[in-house]
């Protein structure tokens, strides 16, 4: 028989756990549904396909969509070789434990730095030299996302069996050849996971871009856009909500971001399921 005191403890604890879990679930659902309900009615084809015009006094978010797309592509192109290269160095080459520890400690430090500090340093390093531009923003994001790409690649490099490498070495392949033909093709899924997570982080980023990529709403071609300032969707949301009081547009953007975040989540789960390992975001 369980004593009264123990039973009280049991029920309090159980109730508290149910309550906390329900609260977490409820908050998530509320946030998603609220934003979608407020945002979707405001999404029109005109909003998506035009740029803001003072003449006809309407707002379009086409430039912000394009800027977001460009900045994601710029940042990924730049961060991939760096992150994957660092991961390859750590798992395939590094023999000095101190160097490994230093690199891993640096990666941990980078992932702990808040985005506003990235924004400031990006402004000092990049924007002050090349002007406020999408490329300056992308370079800032490269530093931010380096640890994500590096860690995910590293995780999947570790799962490449040693015997694959030994087999290739045994056939007389050099180290570089082994990496290029055996190791890299086997860790593609880790690289893809890293990319998905980075895209998610870039889509949600605002503080780091405010002072590096700026606020402009201009439609540019992919290549020309690198030197021009431009707001991404998140920055545009902030400006429309906080500075212009255009809440309809802000909610429309929020709903788009929410759907994108949902898709990113789904694909991350899908890829990591294929990898057969734990889903690790954030």
């Amino acid at each position: 028989m369980i004593s009264k005191r123990r039973r009280l403890f049991l029920w309090t604890v159980r109730g508290a756990m149910y309550l906390a879990t329900a609260l977490t679930a409820g908050l998530t659902l509320f946030l998603m549904l609220y934003v979608l309900a407020k945002g979707i009615p405001n999404i029109t084809w005109e909003l998506l396909s035009t740029k803001p015009s003072y003449l006809s006094d309407r707002i379009g978010i086409l430039p912000d969509i394009l800027n977001t797309l460009y900045i994601v592509i710029y940042a990924l192109i730049l961060v991939l070789p760096l992150g994957v290269g660092a991961a390859i160095y750590l798992t395939e080459y590094a023999s000095n434990q101190k160097v490994v520890a230093a690199i891993e400690y640096a990666a941990e430090t980078l992932s702990g730095i808040p985005s506003i500090i990235y924004g400031l340093v990006g402004m000092l390093l990049f924007s002050n030299n090349m002007g406020t531009s999408l490329l300056a923003g992308a370079l800032t994001l490269v530093i931010m996302n380096l640890p994500t790409i590096m860690r995910n690649t590293q995780e999947s490099l570790k799962t490449v069996p040693m015997s694959y490498r030994e087999g290739a070495f045994g056939l007389g392949a050099g180290k570089w050849r082994v990496i290029r033909t055996v190791v890299l093709p086997n860790c593609v899924d880790g690289i893809v996971t890293g990319c998905i997570l980075s895209v998610g982080r870039i889509l949600g980023e605002s503080a780091a871009l405010l002072f590096t990529a700026g606020f402009a709403h201009v439609v540019n071609g992919f290549w020309a856009a690198r030197n021009s300032a431009g707001a991404t969707l998140t920055v545009a949301l902030y400006v429309y909500a906080k500075e212009q009081g255009e809440f309809g547009v802000a909610f429309a953007i929020a709903a788009i971001l929410m759907v994108l975040a949902f898709l990113i989540n789904l694909s991350a789960t899908f890829v990591s399921k294929r990898l057969g390992r734990k889903n690790q975001i954030g």
């Binding site: 977490t24 998603m32 949600g204 989540n265 954030g282």
Partner: peptide, 12 residues
Amino acid sequence: AVSMLAGIPSVV
């Protein structure tokens, strides 16, 4: 749900 919560941008 928790992953979703983590993925919502801070401006939202």
